[in-house]
């Protein structure tokens, strides 16, 4: 199936920060988790994908189209949730419905109201009286109610309690029941994406350092914990990066089954995305 989003050689330079040669390719029917520390470049990348900032270089195609020719057509079919930016707090969901009816050709009032009911969001209450979990569900509801094919969400789970987070992950899985749909979701809380994401993209200091199928990361990658004596015997090619701690060495390896047969090390753990990210960022080769 064709790719829903492709980013080639995207670069953008600011005084203190730089996006360096970002490449992304998102197929249809999947959830892609976009992971990185705060300030790693997640939001800037998302803004570039949405044509909100002028990039220095780069070729961005959404649904195979270019923003230069088809900006409106593209945005008709994207649902967006931004961090810290939405309609003003004086508005109610019912107001938003009145506005969106004119802004999206495909705005589905019935669907919107149905979502509001499903998520128990009061339609006549001002946004400023919403809790953060309710607000996020409202933002996602608004993003879903014009039948988008691609959802782009910046930090949708940050600051939410576990129940609200799991409800949101459920919405994601619901959305990709249609195999033409995809989700690109950024988060600095990796555990949220560990369950539902199909692919993981890591960004660090404005560069994508890893882009991999999630199952591969969790099922094949491993964290080796060993002593210095054991570490010396391990060939450089057999690990990605290592980190020297006070009492042990931590190695990130790409294939824990192979490693097991080659070396006699006691501790080879299944990694979490957090651990992979940590060793990638803090470790050395």
């Amino acid at each position: 199936m064709s790719e829903i989003l492709s980013v080639k050689n995207l670069s953008k330079k600011y005084d203190l920060f730089e996006l360096k040669n970002i490449n992304l390719s998102i197929p249809r029917g999947v959830i892609v988790g976009f992971i990185g520390e705060n300030g790693a470049g997640k939001t800037t990348t998302i803004k570039s994908i949405l044509n909100m900032i002028n990039v220095d270089t780069g070729d961005i195609k959404v649904f195979g189209n270019d923003y230069k020719e088809k900006e409106k057509d593209i945005k008709e079919k994207i649902g967006v949730v931004l961090d810290n930016s939405f309609f003003s707090e004086q508005l109610t969901p019912s107001d938003i419905n009145k506005i969106m009816k004119f802004l999206y050709k495909e705005w589905d009032e019935k669907l919107f109201i149905q979502y509001l009911n499903d998520f128990k969001l009061p339609i006549e209450k001002m946004i400023k009286e919403y809790s953060s979990g309710m607000l996020m569900k409202l933002k996602i509801t608004v993003a879903l109610s014009h039948h988008p094919e691609l959802l782009i969400l910046d930090e949708p789970t940050s600051g939410l309690d576990p129940i609200a987070r799991s409800e949101i992950l459920d919405i994601f899985l619901d959305f990709i029941q249609n195999e033409n749909h995809s989700i690109f979701v950024s988060s600095h809380i990796t555990s949220d994406l560990e369950t539902v994401a199909d692919y993981i993209v890591f960004i660090n200091k404005g560069e994508i350092i890893l882009s991999e199928e999630k199952d591969k990361l969790l099922d094949d990658y491993g964290i080796v914990r060993c002593t210095e004596d054991e570490f010396i015997k391990i060939e450089k090619d057999d690990y990605i990066k290592y980190r020297k701690n006070k009492f042990d060495y931590e190695l990130l390896i790409a294939d824990r089954n192979n490693f097991k047969t080659k070396y006699d090390v006691k501790v080879i753990d299944k990694p979490t995305l957090d651990e992979i990210m940590l060793i990638y960022i803090k470790g050395v080769k």
Binding site: D170, L173, Q177, V196, D198, K214, D215
Partner: peptide
């Protein structure tokens, strides 16, 4: 595949595999 992924709360590719 997609329905099972949703019911199990896991990713589509995992179920597909």
């Amino acid at each position: 595949i997609r329905a099972l992924a949703k019911d199990l709360g896991i990713s589509v590719i995992t179920t597909k595999n």
